[in-house]
Every structure is written in C-alpha cells, then in structure tokens.
C-alpha cells in the first residue's frame, strides 16, 4: 500500500484506540484525582461492562441496535452499582489509605475476574455491532462502526465535561479534588462525593467497554492491557488534569498507531513504551500536571 493511505489507515486506527482509551482513562483519572485511590480493579470494571453488554444483547432479539442500546444504558448502570457497593463496603472502611486500597483493589480484581469466569465462562464472545456499514475508500475498506465509536466517545466526554463544569455536582467534585479538607469544612459531604466519583469512574470504563465490544470480544481477561494503558495516560496527562488525560489518550493512541507504520510491530511497542517512560522521567508531573502526587 502507498505511504499516504497507509498513514491514513494507521491514524484512523489510532483514533479509535485513543477514543476508547480516553473514556476509560477519564474514569481512572477522576478516581485518582479526586480520591487519590489507585484503582487496580478499574480494568475489571471495563471487562464487566463488556461481559454485561454481551448479556444484554443476548437477551434481546430483533435488530442488533436494540440490544446495543439496552447494553449502553444497562451495563454502565450495573457496573456503577457494583463500584458503589465496593466503595461503601471496602474502600470507605479503609479510609482511602493509598497502600491498603492497592491491596484491596487487587483483591477486587481477583473476585470480579473469577466471578466472570464462573458465570460467563472462558470463551471470547462477540457482540453484534448496531449497524454494519463498511466504508469503501479508494485504497482500503473501513468499518463504519469504528467511526461511530470515535463520535460516541467525543459526545460522552463532552457530557462529562458539562457535568463537571456546569452542574452543582461537578462543582462539589472539583472542590473535593482541590482540597478535600476545606471542602469538608464548607459542608460538602466528602464521603458521598467519593462514592459518587468511584461509581462514575467505573461507569466510564463500562461505557468504553460497551463501545469497543462489537469490535473486540468480551473475554474475562480483557481488563489487563487497557488498565495499564489508562494508568499511563492518566500520569502522562498530569495527575488531576482531565484535559491532560484526554490529550494524552489521543497522543498515545495515535502514536501507537503511527509508530507501527515505521517499525516491526513488537519493536514499535518497545519504542513507544520507552518513549512514554522517558517523557515522564523528564517531565514527572506529566504534560498538564502542576504538582506531583
């Protein structure tokens, strides 16, 4: 294939990856930024979203769009509830102590993963896309659904942005993130804000999963790699900077796609990983961060 179209293809692929990554990382970034909790189980919320999406779509017959719409609402809701329960039963009782929450969320990871294996099984299962347009470009074909994923992710991110900047709930969250003690002093129910943020973060991961699952399949071990990538995105973007998170997701998603044009794939991964590590080494607060953790 000629270089131009090849680059175009790689960029489109990068953009899809970036879109999903941004959603998932946004959830992690919120939790990280507001609660200072390193949630190792975030990838399992993603997996749970995908598995539930399969379950919802398998409940509904007829056009695949119905099942998909149901999954888009149902899966994040259930995952959000699971996260809220985890927060109330475990994290809150740990006082959000950074080290203990790491162990506790590793425990959650094991629990969710094993339950998925018991009830959903070890197979990778596909979910039908709500529509199956194939776009015929002069050089190659491309999935119309993938372009929809990008658009949907942008809409959801705008929604989150509006929630945080235009509503009272968002104001409360930002105040808590800025200084939780002062927020408490001003009568903000910090405990309830934390629970809400943890639930919202998990819902974003689940949303990302529902969007991606017609492209990938739902599998009980699918949470690991996206978790690592979102961690990287959150830190590169700068702790607590949601704008930074989105920019970093785009950078990392796109560069991952484009570097693979020039190098053999595994070498490309090695170089991309090293590059990200070095960015952090020389800019420890990330691209948009103002402080270290």
């Amino acid at each position: 294939m000629d270089f131009g179209p090849y680059l175009l293809l790689a960029s489109m692929e990068g953009a899809v990856q970036a879109a999903v990554l941004a959603l998932m990382a946004l959830g992690l970034s919120l939790v990280f930024g507001v609660m200072r909790v390193v949630n190792i189980a975030h990838g399992e919320f993603f997996m749970l979203g995908a598995v539930l999406a399969w379950w919802f779509t398998s409940l509904v017959g007829g056009h695949p769009a119905f099942g998909f719409a149901l999954a888009l609402i149902g899966a994040p809701l259930i995952v959000g509830l699971v996260a809220v329960a985890a927060d109330l039963l475990v994290l809150k009782r740990l006082d959000y102590d950074p080290e203990r929450t790491i162990v506790a969320t590793i425990g959650l990871l094991y629990i969710i993963q094993q339950l998925a294996l018991e009830f959903y099984g070890p197979d990778a299962r596909p979910v039908a896309a709500p529509f199956s347009w194939r776009i015929d470009l002069p050089w190659f074909g491309y999935s119309g659904y993938k372009l929809f994923v990008i658009a949907a992710a942008v809409v959801i991110m705008l929604g989150v942005w509006a929630l945080l900047t235009r509503t009272r709930i968002g104001l409360v969250m930002r105040a808590t993130q800025f200084d939780s003690e002062t927020a408490q002093a001003f009568g903000i129910p910090v405990g309830r804000v934390y629970t809400m943020v943890f639930g919202l973060g998990a819902m974003l991961a689940a949303l990302a999963a529902v969007l991606i699952v017609p492209i990938q399949q739902a599998h009980y071990l699918m949470g690991g790699d996206p978790l690592l990538l979102s961690f990287i995105v959150v830190i590169i973007g700068g702790l607590g900077s949601l704008r930074g998170t989105v920019v970093a997701a785009v950078l990392i998603g796109m560069s991952d796609g484009i570097i693979s044009v020039f190098f053999s794939p595994t070498l490309a991964k090695i170089l991309a990983t090293l590059l990200v590590a070095l960015v952090l080494v020389y800019r420890p607060t990330g691209l948009f961060g103002t402080r270290t953790a």
Binding site: F32, V38, L228, F231, I232, I235, L239, T273, L274, V276, A277, L280, V281, P284, T285, G286, T292, A293
Partner: peptide
C-alpha cells in the same frame, strides 16, 4: 520522579 509517576515509570 516520585509517587505515582515513579510507579508508572517502573511499570513501563
């Protein structure tokens, strides 16, 4: 780096 950035750099 320090803190979470250190975690991520070592991870990478």
């Amino acid at each position: 780096t320090a803190g979470v950035a250190f975690m991520i750099v070592t991870l990478m």
